[in-house]
């Protein structure tokens, strides 16, 4: 890491604040578990793109660790899946668990391949 610790903290924090606000904005427009799936897929696409781009450690901390890290969420996903298992059944929970993984993984790979293709 080339950024000084205090600068790194500020970059990650500002990116995290923007990521959390963006996730909240999506959550106000899209119903609960669908919004978690949506932010996890979109944020993974963005992280794939950021990871493949030649942007340096400053932008990587702000956009990758901060924004994409905070825009996506594991805790809301885990709590939502456990609740679905109890309220709707194991099949509903398995669908949520599998769809988040499949969508986020495909989005991450797509984001990184697209940027790698453009950057050459």
């Amino acid at each position: 890491m080339t950024a000084a610790p205090l600068l790194a903290t500020a970059l990650v924090g500002v990116g995290g604040a923007l990521g959390a606000v963006s996730r909240h904005a999506v959550g106000l427009r899209v119903e609960g578990r669908r919004s978690v799936l949506l932010v996890n897929a979109l944020g993974s696409f963005a992280l794939g793109a950021v990871s493949a781009a030649p942007i340096g450690s400053t932008a990587a901390l702000l956009l990758g660790v901060g924004f994409c890290g905070a825009f996506t969420t594991f805790s809301s996903f885990a709590v939502g899946t456990v609740r679905a298992a109890s309220e709707t059944g194991a099949r509903a929970a398995a669908t949520i668990a599998a769809s988040n993984l499949a969508a986020a993984l495909a989005a991450f790979l797509l984001g990184s391949f697209l940027v790698a293709a453009v950057v050459g």
Binding site: A20, G69, L105, F108
Partner: peptide
């Protein structure tokens, strides 16, 4: 709920970095 849940805990955890690490 907004400060600790939607803000802090949901940002403390991450799905994108989890996928990136798995790859």
């Amino acid at each position: 709920r907004l400060f600790v849940g939607t803000g802090a805990l949901s940002s403390f955890t991450t799905y994108s970095t989890f996928v990136s690490d798995a790859v």
